[in-house]
Design a protein around this nucleic acid. Sequence first.
DNA 1: GGGGAAGTTTACGTTAACGTAAAGTATTGA
DNA 2: TCAATACTTTACGTTAACGTAAACTTCCCC
Lengths: 124, 124
Amino acid sequence: MTKTYSIGELAREFDVTTRTIRFYEDQGLLSPRRRGQTRVYSPADRTTLKLILRGKRLGFSLAESRDLIRMYRPASDNRQQLEALLQRIADKRAQLERQLADIQVLQTELDDAEARTRQALTGL
Amino acid sequence: MTKTYSIGELAREFDVTTRTIRFYEDQGLLSPRRRGQTRVYSPADRTTLKLILRGKRLGFSLAESRDLIRMYRPASDNRQQLEALLQRIADKRAQLERQLADIQVLQTELDDAEARTRQALTGL
DNA sequence: GGGGAAGTTTACGTTAACGTAAAGTATTGA
DNA sequence: TCAATACTTTACGTTAACGTAAACTTCCCC
């Protein structure tokens, strides 16, 4: 019998509101089981939530995260769709590469800024 | 005599609308000179715009980018403020580190997804 | 058995980041 | 000279991603 989570538990763990989690479900990013009215989250649901929040930290929209979630599941036996999926994966990879490059540029700019700030401090 | 740019030139170069560029000015991120009514952008203005768009690709808000721009200029001779600036720089650096880690996790997840997709394709 | 505490639905409100349209000015090329 | 281009300001509209509030049910505890 595998572990489950309540919406409140997940909200606390990831520091989001329950409203946020329900909103993600509304947008089709999560589909927890129900015990009566109450939502019951599986470890897989929790992983999905984690994926969404990781995406948010990288500036992804919920639509992009939904796409990412779909990439992470087979979900098709159609050749065309699988090929299209490979393409979307490649596109995402390219986007991540660009973000990585952007981060590196920003890091060296921060290095510069810090050096100049320290320089200004020694001049006081 | 240093080069200048019109708003249209910059818009074309960076693939944004002129509305967007004016909006950034409205938000205090850009302050081009004027020739009469018309905005005239310096190479420094262009660099600032590039910084903003790089931030956007990383999911930064305009407020964050405004802060980044300020980090990139001395702008103070007050010890307290310089120390505070160093702190903000350190914070940004930490954020970039986390984003970098997030990207790496996502990259290996994409690797998995691609492998599984190729596997599904060979099974057809 | 009477509160809390945690869950639910429904619905209106809010903010950021522009889009879109209207109406006017300035320059430029046929 | 006139019509197309590129610029300007002003102002209302739009979308994503929730926040906030109200009104309700369920469960647990003393």
